[in-house]
Design a binder for these strands. Structure first.
Lengths: 260, 260
DNA sequence: ACATTGTGTTCGCAATGCGAACGAAGTGCA
DNA sequence: TGCACTTCGTTCGCATTGCGAACACAATGT
């Protein structure tokens, strides 16, 4: 059909894709769903939904009262297999905890994958913030400091590819949407070793991030502090937070090098 | 084949089960695996493993360099579709955070499902503890306070069924293995409204738990503090911790009633 | 160089999972 | 209350999908 390149079609298991879709269906604040609701949301036939839901029940990942279905906490095993496969994050949380107790602002670790960053660890402060930003949730990499500092670790070719293919959307008046300007910002962050992103995703968001390295010096994640923009503008605040953040990142880096 | 009861075989999607098995394969500290390793660990044919792994890659849940496969953080979406489906837990963490800053001991929330409890939220202290006990990990309900206090919410029939069918294993010399004694302990905990379990799972574990209720008063989870047994034995310590824990549980209960 | 073991891929076949069609259960209106 | 109408869960024949034995290729040892 196409002459250029390889069109070698890899084997894909359709029902597996659909099954994963069914699990995600329960994501958006919907704890209990009927068979039909699942079918609609996942865009599959009711018959398929039925098979997949019963499979989940059979495996202990879901329960039903005959009418409604809901996930069991056992489903956490799945996402957790990522976290424990790295086994990096469990000990990082204790260091983040300490940091939060010193600076009284929320702290997170996220991993870049493709065009997005994914939160893998969170320590909020008592001031309840965006509860939607839980572990597993993602944000576009180019508008958050956690993303910028990890993009800075890409090679020139990789960054070129990112900038060419990424959907660079505007979220606030502060969002950098010019691709060349974005490249400059990212490279600057890389040179500095930290990233500050001020209200580019949301008017109320101000974040500072530094990278986390493995023993070979490769950037594998980033750690950040978020705070209200007003507070970030206080004199001396940035320097103070940056020093504390760097300190925490170093502790984690060191432990990482020791274990890996 | 069987005359009594219904043997109505529900439709099960085999490839979905196998796919989930493949994901879990990456759990045990194994970040990168070859196709054959996955096949072995998941006890499926290499051909199946290939299909399923390529499906995961196609969907962005895994990556490969042609030789090895690894999960992407995107896989967290799956497990955490449970957490966000309840949306209860995100705000609970801030209250737990506060508690930990006051009492300087680790705090967790877990949900009972079947014979086990599953951690859904954790706030460790800087003294790094059992890092294996992360979100998503499970423990047998009958040997931990988080389990006992949730078992206490079962009806007599349900508790009967639990005690009859559960595998009551001994973990330490302190483990209660006599089923009648266990029933008495659980019912006592229910009457008191809290549970204290001292070294029944591990010699170094001492935990206090209280239930978390929804607006209808139904127990839906439990929150605990864990500490070294030596410290728990200090005079006045139990009363102090219990009061603090109860206070935190009440805050969460109240917020829960407000939102739900 | 030549077994030998281990790994990834192909391909014919049938079991598996598909969805149109069916029946059951609500819902609204007269 | 009865009768259309909608919505939901289930059945079942058929084609597709996913199965694994067999194959090819790579790595390792002797």
């Amino acid at each position: 059909m196409n002459s250029d390149g390889q069109d070698e079609q890899l084997p894909i298991v359709q029902s597996f894709i659909r099954g994963l879709e069914v699990i995600k269906t329960f994501g958006e604040g919907a704890a209990q769903l009927s068979l039909s609701e699942v079918a609609n949301r996942a865009s599959i036939s009711r018959a398929s939904a039925r098979r997949l839901l019963h499979t989940l029940c059979d495996q202990g990942y879901a329960r039903t009262d005959g009418k409604l279905f809901w996930l069991t906490p056992r489903i956490l095993e799945l996402g957790f297999s990522y976290l424990s496969s790295m086994d990096i994050w469990s000990f990082a949380q204790a260091h983040m905890e300490e940091l939060v107790q010193r600076v009284h602002e929320s702290c997170s670790i996220a991993v870049l994958d493709g065009y997005d960053i994914y939160y893998v660890m969170r320590v909020p402060t008592r001031k309840l913030l965006k509860s939607t930003l839980n572990i597993g949730s993602s944000l576009p990499a180019h508008v958050v400091s956690l993303g910028r500092i990890q993009l800075a670790a890409l090679s020139d070719d990789e960054l070129d590819y990112f900038l060419e293919t990424a959907k660079i959307e505007r979220y606030t008046p502060f969002t950098i949407t010019d691709r060349e300007e974005l490249r400059r910002a990212i490279r600057e962050d890389g040179a500095k070793g930290w990233s500050l992103v001020d209200r580019e995703l949301e008017e109320g968001m101000y974040g500072i991030s530094v990278p986390i390295h493995n023993r070979h010096g490769k950037t594998i994640a980033a750690i950040n502090i978020t705070l209200p923009p007003s507070k970030g503008a206080e004199p001396g605040m940035l320097d103070y937070l940056l020093a504390e953040l760097q300190e925490t990142a170093n502790q984690i880096n060191k432990e990482l090098a020791r274990r890996q």
